[in-house]
Amino acid sequence: MENIEPLYDKKLQCPICSANFTSKKVRSKFIKVNTYDTDFCPVYEEGSINGLLYNVFVCPDCGYSYSEDFSKYFPPPTKENIQEKIQSHWTPHNFSQERTIPAALQTYKLAAYVASLKKEKHIVIAGLHLRTAWLYRMINKIEKEQRFMKMAIEEYSQSYSNEDYKGTQVSDVRILYLLGELSRRTNQYDEAIKYFSMVIERRKRSIETKLIEMALERYHEMKESKKQDKCN
């Protein structure tokens, strides 16, 4: 019987330099999640493959870094900007093998930089920053985790204001919940209560009942905590 490996090589062609390359992807049956943190960060079973490590593709020839969430469209003159800012300074580097968390962090930061040059949607950049924060959480780098959560808040806020999440799998309720939870985790409690309240206000017209329940739980926890602080 054939022994199936957890990782396989996905064949890709770089949209910038047209080089053919491969990048590791994880077969879904090998990703085993025990639970999720309240901001949806996966907590993997011991010995499970960390699926977060392989979300970003990096062209080894020119450094163009992207995920499956990137659009195929390049607004003018973004291709030229990427070639000038990244390709012309790139030292060939191969991220196509098994990755460690430090290597994956490099790929997310590269992808976020590319996304800003490419003028990707705020919702895409927010997702990159959030996953970067999760990886820092996994190695207990608290200050860096906080920094990237704050960067994610900024991008999610822009996405919500500009409604550039429309047409993606992310709903307004999910964005508002994440804005509340990330604000809570970065000690911006008034902002957190504001966003959780906005989620709760949508309970009669939203089908995302789990998110509403989670927002209610966080909201009541924070209100209770505020009461106790006042008593003390």
Rank of each mutant, 00 (worst) to 15 (best):
Asp39Glu: 13
Pro15Ile: 02
Glu181Ser: 07
Pro60Trp: 10
Pro76Leu: 08
Ile101Asp: 01
Tyr156Ser: 06
Ile82Gln: 14
Glu98Gly: 03
Arg184Tyr: 12
Pro76His: 03
Tyr195Met: 09
Tyr73Ile: 14
Phe70Arg: 08
Gln158Trp: 09
Val33Gln: 11
Glu163Arg: 13
Met138Asn: 07
Glu154His: 09
Pro102His: 03
Val43Gln: 06
Asp69Arg: 06
Thr35Ile: 00
His89Arg: 15
Lys25Tyr: 04
Leu53His: 09
Gly180His: 02
Ser65Tyr: 11
Val170Met: 05
Met1Lys: 11
Asp9Phe: 06
Cys17Ala: 02
Trp134Gln: 13
Gly51Asn: 11
Val173Asn: 10
Asp172Lys: 15
Tyr195Lys: 02
Lys230Arg: 12
Lys32Arg: 03
Tyr73Lys: 02
Asp69Val: 04
Tyr160Gln: 10
Pro75Asp: 12
Pro6Met: 13
Glu145Cys: 03
Val26Gln: 05
Lys118Ser: 09
Tyr219Phe: 15
Glu84Leu: 14
Thr22Arg: 09
Glu213His: 13
Ile207His: 07
Leu117Asn: 09
Ser28Gln: 13
Gln188Ser: 14
Ser116Gln: 15
Val124Trp: 12
Glu163Gln: 11
Met149Thr: 01
Lys25Glu: 14
Ser159Asn: 09
Gly127Phe: 11
Ser197Ile: 00
Ile142Ala: 14
Thr35Asn: 01
Leu135Thr: 08
Leu176Trp: 08
Pro42Asn: 10
Ala152Ile: 02
Thr100Gln: 02
Asn50Thr: 03
Asn232Phe: 12
Asn232His: 10
Asp37Gln: 12
Trp90Tyr: 05
Tyr73Cys: 04
Pro92Gly: 09
Ser96Phe: 01
Gly167Ser: 03
Asn140Ser: 09
Lys230Ile: 10
Lys118Val: 10
Ile4Val: 15
Ser161Thr: 07
Gln87Arg: 14
Thr186Pro: 02
Met138Pro: 03
Met214Asp: 07
Glu98Ile: 14
Cys41Leu: 01
Glu163Lys: 15
Asp37Val: 12
Gln158Val: 01
His122Leu: 06
Leu182Thr: 04
Leu52Val: 00
Phe57Ile: 06
Asp164Thr: 15
Ser197Gly: 06
Leu7Gln: 14
Phe196Asn: 00
Val56Met: 05
Glu224Leu: 14
Tyr165Ala: 09
Leu7His: 10
Val56Ser: 07
Lys227Ile: 13
Thr186Met: 08
Ser48Val: 05
Trp134Val: 02
Lys230Asn: 09
Pro76Cys: 07
Gln169Tyr: 10
